[in-house]
Design a protein around this nucleic acid. Structure first.
Length: 455
RNA sequence: GGCCCCGUCGUCCAAUGGCUAGGACAUCAGGUUUUCAACCUGGGAACGCGGGUUCAAUUCCCGCCGGGGCUACCA
């Protein structure tokens, strides 16, 4: 039902994703279906692989569209037909003018180029549309009416000398034939719109409704690109963001509710979104806010979905062990990418972060750790509550702050000073492996402090 | 150069012809805490500039400045 044209680079630009989302939300709201137009399909930068990548990114975002790609070749007959129609009605003409001629003429008058008609089929003749005098008004759902003076508009080339048609002609014909009702796209197409409108007018076709979205910029105010960090949906996926969070964030980038609601599920977005409420100013993509939003979505997931999402991101099986690990890490991570550093120690022997070791394993750590080992050895049930009371007693005996005891244990079993809760970590790691790692740390510690190896 | 679009805290989004311009992210201070997060409390922070209309303008009009887009026999 709607239509958008992503840049065919293989990566789905975040701006393109937002355009797609707005199209999709509108289609969902009005019971229609989104139609994607991916231009330039038979050129180098838009190989079948690149197109597939874009579709894949859209699938990840959980947006759906009307199936069935139609190639330019399949449309060629129809385009030719419409071209003939315009030629016959003298609304278009063969033109020998080159871009130099056009430029030269414009230098003098500053008005739109109007060419001379060449004989049909003349060598090297392109086809131009005759632009009538008057004003072409784009009724934009977001910007209101935007007027363009036809007299400064060149007669646009609508077909090359070899007979192939140009974008502004092709979309006008296709939109009409496909019954496209809404065209939602980037601002950069606003000045193309009068050309398309002129073609439709000449064809006697009723125009769709238009909405032009402001462009997205990077933190420096320049057009969003790779050097600003993540600039594509694929990069967002790799960085461990959730589709629902990305949808929520993207929806808010250019649009907001009157009551300042920030967190919204997809159904709520569909219900509340209105294309007419979209802002007119360009927005800057801010990954920090996305991170925050993503964290909120991560924490609100139920454990099964969470485990599944983590498993998919890690390429592991969502087994019991991973589930247990997720249970203790869910509160901590903002993105899926951050989960593994928190739970990796449960699956493999951790490398010791030397800075953390140095910071934590200093004077006094040895006797504490050694007593902790004994306490843990004596623990009947290796569960958080019991571990807390056993270690609590060690704490009381030594009369030190909790951190003095827990940080060395943490470094001993996880290799780092940042981890899920210490009791939960010990419990999930299990008694054998916990004791083993603490023993190993004690050996190293005593060797370093030059004291005796504890029993 | 020509045509077009845009201009509210650092960022995103609201509101309003008139009381202290609101929320979120970020930031700062404090609290909580076994680390890191999370969480709680509080603070600072914006209507680009100049005219005009009006009793009153951030809001309406004009100019300027600033940012962006288009200006192909590309899409």
């Amino acid at each position: 039902r709607d239509r958008f044209a992503p840049s065919p680079t293989g990566q789905l630009h975040i701006g393109g994703a937002r355009t797609a989302l707005y199209n999709w939300l509108l289609a969902r709201k009005e019971g229609g279906v989104m139609v994607l137009r991916i231009e330039d399909t038979d050129r180098e930068r838009s190989t079948p692989e690149n197109v597939e990548q874009i579709l894949d990114a859209l699938r990840w975002l959980e947006l759906d569209w009307d199936e069935g790609p139609i190639s330019q070749a399949e449309r060629a007959e129809r385009h030719k037909e419409r071209l003939e129609q315009l030629l016959a009605a003298d609304k278009a003409y063969y033109s020998l003018a080159t871009s130099e001629t056009v430029k030269a003429q414009k230098q003098q008058s500053n008005l739109g180029y109007r060419g001379e008609s060449a004989p049909a089929g003349a060598e090297g003749a392109a086809i131009r549309l005759r632009v009538p005098d008057g004003i072409t008004v784009v009724h934009d759902e977001i910007r209101g009416d935007v007027s363009f003076d036809n007299t400064v508009q060149d007669d646009p080339v609508i077909a090359r000398a070899d007979g192939s048609v140009l974008y502004n002609f092709a979309v006008a014909v296709d939109d009409g034939d496909m019954g496209i009702t809404h065209v939602i796209r980037g601002d950069d197409h606003l000045s193309n719109t009068p050309k398309q409108l002129l073609v439709m007018e000449a064809l006697g076709e009723a125009p769709p409704r238009y909405a032009h979205l402001p462009l997205l910029h990077g933190p420096d105010g320049k057009k969003l690109s790779k050097r600003h960090g993540a600039a594509s949906v694929q990069e967002l996926r790799e960085a461990g963001y959730l589709p629902a969070a990305v949808r929520n964030y993207l929806a808010l980038l250019g649009w907001g509710t009157q009551d300042d609601t920030t967190i919204m599920g997809t159904e709520e977005l569909v219900e509340r979104f209105d294309i007419a409420d979209v802002g007119r100013a360009s927005a800057i993509f801010d990954e920090q806010k996305l991170r925050w939003l993503n964290g909120r979505f991560m924490r609100e997931m139920d454990l099964d979905s969470y485990t599944e999402a983590v498993a998919r991101h890690l390429g592991r099986e969502p087994d019991e062990r991973l589930r247990a690990a997720c249970a203790i890490a869910q509160e901590k991570a903002q993105t899926l990418e951050e989960v593994w550093p928190l739970i990796g120690f449960l699956f493999e022997e951790p490398d010791t972060d030397e800075r953390a070791w140095k910071k934590v394993m200093k004077d006094g750590a040895l006797p504490l750790l050694s007593d902790a080992l004994e306490a843990l050895r004596g623990a009947e049930r290796f569960e958080p509550a019991e571990l807390e009371s056993s270690l609590g007693r060690v704490l009381a005996e030594h009369d030190v702050k909790p951190g003095k005891l827990y940080q060395p244990i943490r470094v001993a079993i996880t290799g780092t000073s940042v981890s899920p809760g210490i009791f939960e970590s010990l419990a999930v790691l299990g008694k054998d492996r916990s004791l083993q790692r603490i023993e190993r740390a004690l050996h190293r510690l005593s060797a370093e402090t030059g004291k005796q190896t504890p029993p």
